[in-house]
Amino acid sequence: MSDQSNQDPHWKEDFPVERTEATKVSRRDFARFLCLVSGGLAVGSGYVAVKANFFPPEKVQGEHFICKADSVPTGGTRSFVLAGSDIPYILVKLETGHWRAYEQKCTHLSCAVYYKPGSSQIVCPCHEGFFDAMTGEVIAGPPPRPLPALEVVVKGEDIYVRAGGTELAKK
């Protein structure tokens, strides 16, 4: 310990007097920076793991009334939000007569998607992402995942939605 005092302090290594000693300073910093990035990425992965395992996204509870069936024309859509959440959804009445409800947020970068009448495709205008309106699957473009769906229940003249459309749409 006693010979510590006549050594240069540690930081002086990065600000040397002699030019030859300075040749590696910036690369050393770069390597340290890479290590920092590496730690950041590890923390990020940890966050994802914790979030996925302990704080899963809440499922929609129960059934929610949306509208009367005749208020949406064939090939038409209606957007809605469920009480207590601010996720926008889109209700689609396909030309085939099927009802579908999807999250209106593109799975790429969360732009609002819309239904293109007559094409049975849901389109994201931001980067030309296309989804199958029947299943929510990605047809083309950058989105990495299918649109999250809700199950639509038709009760007489009333349209309800409830959780679980994703499994239904995959069938």
């Binding site: 890479l34 290590c35 590496s38 730690g39 990425l41 590890a42 990020g44 992965s45 940890g46 994802v48 793991a49 996925a52 395992n53």
Partner: peptide, 15 residues
């Protein structure tokens, strides 16, 4: 997610 995190942490330790 968990295996990815473990692998990532190991890589960080190596770095």
């Amino acid at each position: 997610a968990l295996p990815a995190f473990i692998a990532s942490a190991v890589l960080f330790l190596i770095s």
